[in-house]
C-alpha cells in the first residue's frame, strides 16, 4: 500500500476497532497502541498479505491483531493463549438474576470479568458481543469454523454469568 489517502481512509475506518480489541484482550493501553501500530505497519510493508478473494479486510485486520496480541501475551508470560484447563477457579451458575449490569459500578465488574476470561473465550466475546462482528467475520479472524465461534461464545457467556453471579453474592 503506497497511496497515503487510501491508507488514511483505511486507518480511520478500522484503527479504533483494532485498538479496542487489543485493549480488551490485553488490558493495557500501551499494548493496544503497539498492536495497532504493528497491524498497520504490516499493511504498509506487506500489502500482498491481504487477499481480497478470501474475505473483507476488517476480519483480516482482526486476525492480524489477534496474532500480535497473542505474541504480546505470551511474551509477558501472563497467560498461555490456547492452553487447556483454564477454567479453574470458576463457579457454577446460580439461579438468581444478575441484577442491572448496565449500572456504572456493575459495568466495571463486568469489564473485569471479561478481562479474566481465558483468551479463547474472551476474544469471541470482544469480537461478537462488544464489537458486533458477525459470527462469520469472527470465524474468519480466528480462522476457525462458525460453529466453533458459536460454541465458544455460548461457553464464554456461561462463564461470565457465573463470574457475575459470584460477584453479586460476595
Amino acid at each position: 500500500m503506497t497511496d497515503p489517502d487510501a491508507f488514511t481512509a483505511l486507518y480511520r475506518q478500522n484503527s479504533s476497532a483494532i485498538y479496542r480489541f487489543a485493549l480488551h484482550m490485553s488490558g493495557s493501553t500501551s499494548v493496544a497502541e503497539e498492536v495497532t501500530q504493528e497491524v498497520f505497519l504490516m499493511l504498509i510493508h506487506s500489502p500482498k498479505s491481504y487477499d481480497a478473494s478470501r474475505g473483507e479486510i476488517g476480519p483480516f485486520l482482526y486476525g492480524v491483531a489477534r496474532n500480535f496480541v497473542k505474541r504480546h501475551l505470551e511474551r509477558d508470560r501472563r497467560q498461555q493463549y490456547f492452553e487447556d484447563g483454564e477454567e479453574e477457579g470458576l463457579f457454577s451458575v446460580a439461579a438468581d438474576p444478575l441484577g442491572d449490569l448496565t449500572q456504572k459500578e456493575n459495568l466495571q465488574a463486568l469489564k473485569e470479568a471479561v478481562a479474566a476470561l481465558p483468551p479463547k473465550y474472551r476474544e469471541v466475546v470482544v469480537m461478537c458481543d462488544l464489537q458486533e462482528l458477525s459470527y462469520e467475520a469472527a470465524a474468519q479472524a480466528i480462522e476457525c469454523a462458525v460453529g466453533t465461534v458459536r460454541s465458544r461464545l455460548h461457553r464464554a457467556r456461561t462463564l461470565l454469568m457465573s463470574k457475575m453471579q459470584t460477584k453479586c453474592h460476595v
Binding site: D100, L101, T102, L107, L110, D129, L130, M164
Partner: peptide, 9 residues
C-alpha cells in the same frame, strides 16, 4: 441481562 450489560460496556 448479560447481553444488555455487554452492550452497555
Amino acid at each position: 441481562e448479560l447481553l444488555a450489560g455487554l452492550r452497555a460496556l
